Computed example of a mutant assay.
Amino acid sequence: MGNTSLAVHKAIVFTIIGVLLIPILATLAYSLSTHWGATILPEGFTFEWFHKLLSTPRFLWAFGRSLLICFSALILSTLLILPAIFVVFYYFPKLDKLMNLLILLPFSVPPVVSSVGMLQIYADSDISLIGTPWILIGTYFTIALPFMYRAIANSFSAINLRDLMDAAHLLGASTPKAFFLVVLPNIKKGLMASLFLSFSFLLGEFVFANILVGTRFETLQIYLYSVRQESGHYTSALVMTYFFFIFLSTWLAGRIGAKS
Rank of each mutant, 00 (worst) to 15 (best):
I130N: 09
I130M: 10
I130L: 12
T132F: 07
I135Y: 06
I135L: 03
L136H: 02
L136K: 04
L136A: 04
G138N: 00
G138I: 10
G138R: 00
G138Q: 02
G138V: 06
T139Y: 05
Y140F: 12
Y140W: 03
Y140Q: 12
Y140T: 07
F141I: 06
F141M: 03
F141C: 00
I143H: 03
I143F: 11
A144P: 11
A144T: 01
A144W: 06
A144I: 01
A144D: 02
L145E: 00
P146N: 01
F147V: 14
M148W: 01
R150T: 08
R150F: 05
A151C: 06
A151Q: 12
A151E: 10
I152K: 00
N154M: 11
N154P: 05
S155G: 02
S155F: 03
F156W: 03
A158Q: 13
A158I: 08
I159G: 04
L161Y: 10
L161R: 09
D163Q: 15
D163M: 15
L164R: 12
L164A: 13
M165W: 04
M165D: 06
M165Y: 06
D166W: 05
D166S: 13
D166Y: 05
A167M: 13
A167S: 15
A168S: 13
A168K: 10
H169I: 12
H169A: 14
L171Y: 12
L171S: 14
G172T: 03
A173Y: 14
A173R: 14
S174L: 10
S174V: 04
S174A: 02
T175Y: 07
A178K: 01
A178S: 12
F179K: 02
F179G: 02
F180V: 14
F180R: 13
L181V: 13
V182Y: 03
L184M: 15
L184G: 03
P185M: 04
I187L: 00
I187P: 00
I187S: 07
I187W: 01
I187E: 04
K188E: 10
G190M: 00
M192K: 05
M192G: 10
A193D: 05
S194E: 02
S194P: 01
L195Y: 11
L197V: 11
L197A: 06
L197S: 08
S198G: 09
S198A: 10
F199M: 14
F199H: 04
F199P: 01
S200L: 13
G204F: 00
F206H: 10
V207F: 01
F208M: 14
F208R: 09
F208T: 09
A209E: 10
A209L: 08
N210A: 15
N210T: 13
I211E: 01
I211K: 00
L212Q: 08
L212W: 12
V213I: 11
V213A: 14
G214F: 09
G214M: 12
T215W: 04
R216Y: 13
F217Y: 15
E218V: 07
E218W: 09
T219P: 03
T219K: 08
L220E: 06
Q221W: 05
I222F: 09
L224C: 04
L224Y: 04
L224H: 06
Y225H: 10
Y225V: 08
Y225I: 05
S226A: 13
V227H: 06
V227S: 06
V227F: 07
R228N: 12
R228G: 06
Q229L: 13
Q229D: 14
E230G: 05
G232Y: 04
G232E: 09
